[in-house]
């Protein structure tokens, strides 16, 4: 009974997601569809990094590395294991995403255990180094295409189910959205538990946390491993939708983008991470028409200026540490 109740809101959200997928399937052009999948992937990435950087107060700068581990292990596996036919493919994607997540989580454990003793800048540098190592290793691994890239990764394709076309977008969007919801609800609920409060206490004051009986090393490693898992899932979704991977997709810039999403949204705010993920993904594309008009590509300049302005006006990010639900509560309190 309770298990059913726990799944009610996620399930309803999933139904809404399917409706959105159908609307998008008919109303959006191919480019916007692709963009919406990337938005979902970046949402997963932002929420997962927020767990480490926002809630637990550690500074990881190598999230692209974990995403790469997930993407490549998932892609490689999909070329080894026979693919299920037709609409059943969705189960393949689920399986690959889980495997990609687990591989990334394993990497997170190996990197996190020794390096989480380091603080702040030092941890940032170690994780940055990890990201670069992964990228260089991939560049030099012929089995996954090396520098040429990894071609022919199976992914969602259009299926004609007797008149109705189950499109690549429908499947891809539903799958990415599914994981986005999983990431959201798992992290959200965790933060309402002793485990999540343990993460927060590490961020707030490690010495006091220990004095209260919180095993801070364990809390940090757990947050890091869970975060890596979701980054790996994001990587897997990316791999199978794009059907192609290149080590260049997981360069330092992507790690920085993830950090920007968390900082821009507000460290320790899921709502902020989600909104910032949309913004960071869509903004460069919105500016594209401008480029056509004036003939030079000043997108990055505008984008950077915008970020700087935003951080000046809202130094704690769009949401600070608050959530939409907090804002709603405040608004209600003010009204009454």
């Amino acid at each position: 009974m309770t298990a059913l109740r726990a799944l009610k809101i996620p399930f309803l959200s999933f139904l809404v997601l399917i409706v959105i997928a159908f609307i998008g399937n008919f109303a959006l052009d191919g480019f916007v569809q692709l963009l919406s999948i990337y938005v979902l992937i970046n949402m997963i990435l932002a929420m997962s990094l927020n767990l480490v950087n926002g809630y637990t107060g550690q500074f990881s700068l190598g999230h692209a590395g974990f995403m790469a581990v997930g993407a490549y292990s998932s892609a490689w596996l999909s070329t080894q294991v026979p693919f299920l036919p037709g609409p059943l493919q969705i189960f393949n994607f689920l399986l690959y995403a889980v495997v990609g997540g687990i591989m990334a989580a394993g990497a997170g454990y190996l990197v996190g255990l020794p390096s989480l003793r380091l603080k702040g800048d030092y941890l940032a540098i170690v994780t940055l180094g990890f990201g670069e190592i992964i990228r260089v290793v991939l560049l030099n691994t012929p089995a996954v295409g090396g520098a040429r890239g990894f071609y022919g990764i199976p992914g969602p394709t259009d299926h004609d189910l007797g008149g109705f076309v189950l499109s690549k977008f429908l499947m891809g969007f539903t799958h990415a959205g599914f994981w986005c919801l999983v990431t959201f609800f798992v992290i959200w609920r965790l933060m309402e538990s002793s485990h999540g409060r343990g993460f927060l206490s590490v961020r707030e004051d490690e010495i006091a946390a220990e004095a209260m009986g919180v095993d801070t090393t364990q809390a940090k490693v757990r947050a890091f491993v869970l975060s890596s898992f979701f980054a790996g899932v994001a990587g897997s979704i990316f791999a199978h939708y794009a059907n192609y991977l290149s080590p260049a997709s997981f360069n330092f810039q992507r790690s920085v983008d993830a950090v920007i999403m968390v900082v821009l949204g507000g460290m320790g705010s899921m709502s902020g991470a989600l909104l910032a993920a949309v913004f960071i993904t869509v903004m460069p594309e919105l500016l594209r028409p401008l480029q056509q008009v004036i003939g030079v590509d000043i997108r990055m300049i505008i984008y950077s200026l915008f970020l700087i302005l935003l951080m000046i006006m809202r130094p704690k990010g769009l949401f600070g540490k608050l959530e939409l639900t907090d804002l709603y509560k405040r608004w209600k309190a003010r009204k009454s």
């Binding site: 298990a3 109740r5 799944l7 609800f185 609920r189 946390a209 919180v214």
Partner: peptide, 19 residues
């Protein structure tokens, strides 16, 4: 509540599934 973290026995999965 953080002070009582050490006495909480439920797992992360319990929290995620609101058992």
């Amino acid at each position: 509540m953080i002070g009582a973290t050490q006495h909480q026995k439920y797992s992360m999965l319990d929290a995620a599934l609101i058992t």
